[in-house]
Design a protein around this nucleic acid. Structure first.
Lengths: 323, 323
DNA sequence: CTGAAAGCGCTTACAG
DNA sequence: CTGAAAGCGCTTACAG
């Protein structure tokens, strides 16, 4: 591989001058700079990350630990974070290995920071001393590192409240009910609390899975044996997609026959078969918050636990058109 | 961060001895080794990848370029490759950036090799000179780097042939028909050729997408207006999942009312609602082949273009139980 | 068996 | 503006 020494030789300067030119230092004469840059391109020079890192102590790399790589909303979030970090000159590198191994890897690589999409890593599964900031996206409480989370309970309160204001008192919840994963559990709890507070009867529809097809299957089964509630809250975008299909399949109309509010504030909700009313922290805000926290942590500032406030976006699916 | 010099100081030896001990060199006395290893653990030492790489010229890292991160079968493949490379002491690092950027990143990082899951990168979008082996998983032909591919056409021949042998002459194809992506196109071509060869009439059912829900929607729409073909070939596991649901939803039985063969040879096929007959290169074989090629390339051997031979696994979905 | 020395490819004070 | 020197954290011949 070509190094700055090769360029130096080709351009007839010292390699420290090459280094400065490559880093666009004002200390080098414009003409020299041009010559050097040309030679570099001509030789097909690619800077050596490792060597640079060794002296600068920065890798400009953030490790993302995400063994699952699934869910539309999480993928969307990863995409935004990747893009926004790139704009800051930081590269996201993803590992799908077990969290413990992935963290060890990023530690050896001296990533500037680690971002955890895996929510359920107890403190004791972490290396005893990790000289590296770590940020978790998830539900605070299970461990004590900095976390960006979402007020899932409040999101459900918003969802229930908009339906109640529209006159609904029969409100079902479509989601994975057996509480695998703290995020799912928090949503469900929020729903139950919001109904209880209003003296309404909860109707839990268990999807037994998190894919759109699971939402579809649960709703189809329900439709086959009993009428639907007047309105439904879907626990995620994926679930909502399946739910909508099942409802339309049965010849029912949204929102006329059943109103629907979906979790996950992502643009895809607007492009569903029926534009979906959604609650959740807008994915751009979530990504921005993660990126800001990451940058703060990298800058050596104190880690925080933050919970972001969900927002409600009303679209056709929860709004009954008067005719 | 603690370095080998810190350990040397703590263990009262030179840091070159520490280096040897850490690498389990036979040149260092067992007792000294033990002392050093203990001190290292005690101090929470993590080796610095960059420094090591700088001298050894190896990063033991393979970059995976996969902007999409979707599809069950691809995720399954990534998981297998990740695991098998880990067993070889190599770490897979995934980038979801644009392929060009991702490749540039892995180039600066001096990955030992790059694996492309993105199939459609023309040669001219690559850096002029990439001093690094690159392996593509996909359809050979669009570029000229080493490729591991699948004989999609033969897979479809297998699928059609097993159905024909079971007595079917009405065989539909469920998939994304407008040819986005060369993998999809190859499957479709294989199907059309296999039918043509037998003088059978092709029936293309366009899913207009690659998610399970797209398969479901396409089948539902079809069921609503006309009877199904006697048998169907689904272009992927995701599509098959949706297809099966739609068929059962309509009160039909597999394989009695419609026989089904699915693409993608992954264990998940056996666990579908109906165990699915599947064609494709078994995912472990595919992963093994990718890993072997990668290791060969890393060892400096010549790059090849290989196409693997799909296999047929017969399960209940294509087998009519005589009663 | 142990240690001193050179060097991997860079950046960055420091002289000139 | 340019270059020589030191040093980042390691490995690996080479002496002892």
């Amino acid at each position: 591989m070509v190094t700055i020494k090769d360029i130096a030789r080709a351009a007839n300067v010292s390699y420290s001058t090459v280094s400065k030119a490559l880093n666009d230092s004002p200390l080098v004469k414009p003409e020299t700079k041009t010559t050097i840059l040309n030679k570099a391109k001509q030789l097909g020079y690619t800077p050596n990350f490792a060597a640079k890192h060794l002296v600068t102590k920065r890798t400009n790399t953030v490790g993302l630990v995400w063994p699952e790589i699934n869910r539309v909303a999480l993928t969307e979030l990863a995409r935004h974070v990747n893009k926004m970090m790139a704009d800051e000159g930081k590269n996201i590198l993803l590992s799908i290995s077990d969290p413990t191994e992935a963290i060890a890897l990023f530690s050896r690589m001296r990533s500037d920071a680690i971002l955890l999409f895996e929510e359920d890593i107890p403190q004791n599964q972490l290396p005893a001393q990790l000289d590296m900031p770590l940020l978790s996206y998830g539900v605070p409480g299970i461990n004590q590192f900095p976390t960006v989370g979402v007020q899932h309970e409040y999101a459900m309160e918003l969802a229930v409240s908009t339906l109640v204001e529209s006159g609904y008192s029969s409100i079902g919840y479509v989601g994975m009910v057996d509480g695998i994963g703290r995020r799912q559990l928090a949503k469900q709890t929020g729903y139950l609390d919001a109904l209880k507070k209003r003296g309404l009867k909860p109707i839990l529809i268990d999807t037994k899975g998190l894919n759109s097809i699971d939402g579809f299957t649960a709703l189809s089964a329900l439709l086959a044996k009993s009428p639907l509630p007047e309105s439904l809250i879907c626990s995620s975008y994926d679930i909502a997609v399946g739910t909508v299909r099942a409802i339309r399949q049965a010849g029912l109309t949204i929102p006329e026959d059943v109103a629907l509010v979906s979790y996950d504030n992502i643009p895809q909700q607007a492009e569903a078969d029926v534009p979906l009313t959604a609650v959740g922290v807008p994915v751009e805000k979530l990504a921005k918050s993660l990126v800001q926290e990451l940058l703060r942590l990298i800058a050596g500032e104190e880690g925080l636990v933050r919970e972001l406030v969900p927002e409600l976006v009303v679209r056709a699916s929860s709004h009954i058109s008067k005719q």
